[in-house]
Design a protein around this nucleic acid. Structure first.
Lengths: 250, 250
DNA sequence: TGCTTATGAAAGATTATGATTGATTTTGAA
DNA sequence: TTCAAAATCAATCATAATCTTTCATAAGCA
């Protein structure tokens, strides 16, 4: 990982969190403690953050702590691992579709590639995307107030205006026979069409989703690569026969 | 937990509570009593709180009222008058376009008619619409982060999916010759198309907008009714020759 | 090759923490 | 009011965590 990328990542994380521990950064960046310390020292000299004992803290005014909902906190570590890997696939100039959902939301701080354009149907992504200076477009559509996702025919139709280099989707179920599934048919339709309009399609999930089946079928396993944080041995073989899979560990 | 995080947490709790016991803090932070005591001592030296026997107390009993931003506060009363009247025009079953902007935002609390459907390009309207249980659709498009408005060809195109009973638009300039104007051509395009797709079109403004001319022309005065909170006598005659005008007073 | 820069590891210094002790303050009953 | 018990407090100390400094190695580049 490039030094400047790490710096950017640290700053991005601080936009989310108000303060962060060195140990967390060590885990998230896979760099040594020494390196992180040096990073923090440099960034402090640039007035980008403030070092505190044990980590670093945002220099900006005391933003109200963005309280994570329970759902967002669940499997957060695994989701971050998956999200970090997914974000590392994004290259300069890419145009992306970023699905609504908590897992894909975790990608945003790690999106350090330059000149990236994002289209999303996730209202809750907007603030983070804006803070990280990422050019963003929103699909239209009906607002599912529970999830903050834009869905319906208008959302699907909005997608027709775009072609994506990569799309990143969240799902609720992964099953060798029933493929990728999610509870809401309208959300499924958006995911499906986004995948079809992308050169590469990635499904992000944590291992708890494996074997689950939800109501609405998105597409079969062979239509998307899968990024996941762990799988039982036999499941892995089963999946590998059908699609590209990246198991992220550490 | 980081020291600074604990400090911040203590201060946040004091924003809610006026005073707090050390034992409470011990439980909430999972730190020892000693640590909490040290925290309180430090924060007292920084004048952030006052130590009292058994805990700590807020230093400023009467917190300053959170001041509304200047723009939102400007002519707020007039805007509310205008907005309330505009909302009273909405009838059961109406489908509306609600323009982005602070004046139209004021309408939402007054939208009491049943079975109303709203399409908007204003991201900042969503929360209020949702709170009032109003079925809402969002246009797609590029996000103007300064105003939270969705604009561009995708936004305009989104509108084509709909037909409105009434649309309510904000403007920056009202001029007998130059018509309705606004600074951003892309926003102007959205307003224009929304007006065209409506059976009735209303422009909401306060009197400070009269005589002003902005860069982007939306349409001439005769294409929309005008709801405003007051006008000089001669101006009123001038406008009345061109369009329907409702002057809201009280 | 030689030079620079980035990195990781290690040693010793510094800081934060939790437990303990005895002093101080509050509480409530006489 | 007065006294004793309970709660809270400040001070101290040992330990664990974190920090700084230093050095050696690895990677990139002329």
């Amino acid at each position: 990982m490039l030094t400047t990328e790490r710096h950017q990542l640290i700053l991005n994380l601080l936009k989310e969190k108000q303060s962060i521990k060195i140990q967390e950064l060590v885990e998230l960046t896979a760099a040594s403690e020494s390196t992180i310390r040096r990073d923090l020292t440099e960034l402090e000299e640039l007035q980008k953050l403030e070092r505190v004992f044990g980590g670093a803290s945002r220099i900006a005014p005391n933003m109200p702590e963005p309280s994570l909902s329970d759902k967002a906190a669940k499997n957060l570590k695994e989701k971050q691992l998956v999200a970090r890997y997914a974000a590392s696939l994004v290259k300069t100039g890419d145009s992306l579709f970023l699905d609504a959902g908590t897992t894909t939301a975790q990608m945003i701080p790690f999106l350090t590639a330059k000149d990236v354009t994002v289209v999303t149907n996730g209202l809750s992504h907007l603030e983070a995307l804006n803070e990280h200076g990422i050019t963003s477009y929103l699909t239209g559509g009906f607002i599912k107030s529970r999830t903050g996702a834009l869905v319906g025919p208008q959302a699907t139709q909005s997608l027709e205006n775009y072609r994506f280099d990569k799309s990143f989707l969240g799902v609720n179920g992964i099953h060798p026979v029933h493929g990728f599934t999610t509870p809401d048919p309208e959300e499924a339709a958006v995911k499906r069409r986004a995948g079809e309009l992308s050169r590469s399609c990635y499904v992000l999930a944590d291992h708890s989703k494996f074997g689950k089946v939800s109501f609405a079928h998105i597409f079969d396993l062979n239509r998307s690569a899968l990024i996941i944080d762990g799988l039982p041995e036999d499941a892995l073989e089963e999946i590998e026969r059908q699609t590209t899979i990246k198991v992220v560990t550490q």
